[in-house]
Design a binder for these strands. Structure first.
Lengths: 263, 263
DNA sequence: TTGCTCCTCACGTCACGTGAGGTGGC
DNA sequence: TTGCTCCTCACGTCACGTGAGGTGGC
């Protein structure tokens, strides 16, 4: 056997990859052995394949998906691929930091029990800016919708003190359509006109950072379940405070969900 | 049908879970429908099951595994279960922050190419403290071994200026045994005596934080591959600088790997 | 000859999502 | 009657790990 060729086990140690990983990369065509014995199926690698293998090991240790690694090895613009991966991971890091904070509160204070009131609300004519988003990016996308809506309102001289209203579907799916609404007279260019239905709503007030809103939302829904009320439409978040002027722990948000007529 | 009972779709909206999730939780016995129609298989939920369902939804959104949620719902000490989950996630967060930093360096500077020299080293008599660890916890475990070794050396009046040596197997497996060694005369209670083999080593010098060590290590292994040298034993990290006195970006570490005799 | 290394299935992991193909309920 | 909702398989996801059962190489 050629002295430059290594059996899979030796090559694995050289690259700090498992034998199973190397076989897997062979199957995927990501890193083919230089030679395969046609009788025994033994895989043999050239030592200079270590550069590629080590790159895979390094990128995998950084949680770069194999598909992206494949692109890089195939000569695609590595910087772009890796930058995209980096951005994904950074967003993920942010999300995890948030969930950790929420988990901490659950730990210290238990599952949320919130005070809920029933109110009758009129229908409202609103201007809406919405967007589709994977559910893990809802906060970011909502933020972008807020910006777009505020710009549209300012351009149309319709800026007002009435709080913005976030609208979130109850059905959870991979893709979700989030929207932000503002009560207006007439139409606002760059937004969609809509009428938010009136009726009876279950309402809870959330005091604190937006990151913890999900706690109150879950508490509100649990309350509905226990009282036998069936929520319909979308969950509304009425942003009573201005987040640019209020410290996060004092932010007031009203959570509202319309209930099915029960009479 | 009893008015308090909800079909799976309605119940799903109430709890912000997908129908698929509810069916999955039923199969696992995590949340059983209050009633199942024996003819049609239709699942019906009592509205007051929403509290449990909402708890699941909330904890799942925090990436708590179903097994842990099951324990909490079954009445296990919720605080302990959640605290364990929290610790896991915090460690994970730290790891991700580190890998992100390494990925950033790869992005700006490309795959590492390191300068490597071949040196002949004598065998060394050392005191060793080792521990088994899952591979994702290697840095933490190594740190603990360092502390234990330094304490043992101090108790035995064997503290010296010779740098500590980290020892890491080349074979990657789920569980890895890491160790930290110090050159000593005689035995040191609380440590294992060992003789580190001498021979020819490929060496590279890493300047910078320990978090970036893997970059230089991978560069060193790639070099070995390209030159046709076969690394054996464990990878050694010689901690030349004292991390308590040196800023991270100036830390000097020598990476060494013994090579098979090729005469 | 004895171990060690290598091979190929086949299945498990985790928490569902995605159809396919069919039926119940208002 | 038409849609909508619900059902049960069966398979896919992602990157391998874990045996089972068998063979090659020194």
């Amino acid at each position: 056997m050629d002295h430059d060729l290594l059996a899979i086990g030796q090559f694995a140690r050289l690259c700090r990859l498992s034998v199973k990983q190397l076989r897997h990369y062979d199957e995927l065509g990501l890193l083919r052995p230089a030679q395969v014995d046609p009788n025994t199926g033994y895989r043999y690698y050239r030592a200079d394949q270590a550069r590629a293998a080590v790159s895979i090991a390094l990128l995998r240790s950084l949680d770069v998906p194999l598909a992206a690694i494949g692109q890089v090895l195939a000569g695609a613009a590595a910087a772009e691929v890796l930058a995209a991966v980096r951005d994904r991971q950074e967003a993920d890091l942010l999300r995890r930091r948030r969930t950790l904070a929420v988990l901490d509160r659950v730990l210290t204070q238990g599952m949320p029990r919130v005070e809920v009131t029933l109110v009758r609300e009129p229908a409202r004519r609103v201007a809406v800016v919405g967007d589709a988003t994977p559910s893990e990016d809802i906060p970011t996308t909502t933020g972008r919708c807020v910006v777009r809506l505020l710009e549209a309102l300012a351009s149309a001289d319709q800026a007002s003190d009435a709080p913005l209203i976030g609208l979130f579907p109850l059905d959870v799916t991979q893709q979700v359509i989030v929207a932000v609404a503002a009560e207006v007279d007439g139409e606002v260019p760059g937004t969609t006109p809509e009428v938010l239905a009136g009726g009876v709503f279950a309402c809870a007030t959330h005091v604190g950072s937006y990151e913890q809103l999900s706690l109150t939302a879950h508490g509100l829904l649990a309350w509905c379940g226990e009282r036998g009320h069936l929520p319909i439409d979308r969950l509304r978040e009425v942003y009573v405070s201005d987040p640019r002027e209020t410290p996060p722990e004092q932010l007031v948000t009203r959570l509202m969900i319309r209930l099915e007529d029960t009479e």
